[in-house]
């Protein structure tokens, strides 16, 4: 079989919005509970690490430690939100709840379902960013000049992690195996993408590796610039990297899921 079949460009239909709406409706049923983690997590992290641990750190690149990690906390939350939405949550809907089966008995086809799931994952990332920005702003750790741009950017970044997550969902033989991408991919990124310390303290080879293969590196970089209120032209390279990777993994995840579900 040719590998090209995994790179067929999928056609998007407006009906994918109905799948998005289904997930939104479920989210809104527990909206208060769902808003709690993005509200509480930055407070806890900022208190413990930003101000606790940060008391022993003079400054990083001219900003306080709390100010340094605050944008990274948003980036990490953006990653977690869509990645877990499109791995564990999608897997549960697909395998245990048979939600996908129910949907494709209607005029919707499987491509609509997967695309709807991916855009919903991206939406969850954007929601998290939207909740976290005022919390972090309340600590005085964010420049409000470009802060709101973080929300649409979080949607794009979220889409990338949604698509990567969906690839794992398509490939995993069962739900327990999903722990491996979390352990081997998500957790290292959480720690080594310029999140809690600057990348430049790492050996040069690892820095190149991070820029080439760890999406969070680029996302932290852009959110940090937006949060500091200081944009520079060189950020375009990170934005392009994210756009290209999103497109690639979008196409790949759609084809992998089609292959898995259409038998």
């Amino acid at each position: 079989m040719s590998y090209l079949q995994y790179f067929q460009i999928p056609e998007l239909d407006r009906r994918l919005l109905k799948v998005w709406l289904r997930n939104k409706d479920v989210f809104m049923k527990n909206v208060k509970l769902n808003f709690l983690p993005p509200f509480l997590e930055p407070i806890l992290y900022l208190l413990a690490m930003g101000f606790g641990l940060g008391a022993f750190i003079d400054d990083i690149d001219g900003v306080s430690y709390a100010q340094f990690i605050a944008p990274a906390l948003i980036a990490v939350s953006v990653m977690y939100a869509s990645f877990f939405e499109c791995t564990y949550s999608s897997y549960v809907r697909m395998y245990y709840q048979k939600t996908f089966d129910a949907i494709i008995a209607t005029p919707l086809i499987i491509e609509d379902v997967i695309a709807g799931e991916l855009f919903w994952g991206a939406t969850r990332s954007a929601i998290n960013a939207l909740v976290m920005i005022p919390v972090i702003a309340a600590f005085g750790l964010i420049d409000l000049k470009y802060a709101l741009l973080i929300v649409p950017f979080a949607f794009l970044a979220g889409l990338l992690f949604a698509c990567i997550g969906m690839c794992f969902t398509a490939l995993t033989p069962n739900i327990t195996v999903l722990e491996y991408p979390t352990l081997l991919f998500i957790t290292p990124m959480f720690l080594f993408s310029g999140t809690f310390f600057p990348l430049k303290v790492l050996p040069e080879a690892i820095q190149y590796f991070a820029f080439a293969f760890l999406p969070l590196t680029h996302i932290v970089r852009i959110i940090r610039a937006l949060a500091y209120g200081s944009l520079e032209v060189s950020l375009i390279s990170s934005l392009l990297w994210i756009l290209m990777a999103s497109f690639l993994f979008f196409v790949l995840s759609m084809n992998l899921m089609k292959k898995k579900l259409i038998v």
Binding site: R22, D25, V26, K29, Q97, K98, T99, D101, P107
Partner: peptide, 17 residues
């Protein structure tokens, strides 16, 4: 599928609703 109704072997109601 627009004009078809389906009752599958296994109930697949949405437990979130």
């Amino acid at each position: 599928k627009k004009d078809m109704g389906v009752v599958p072997q296994e109930n697949n109601l949405d437990p979130d609703f």
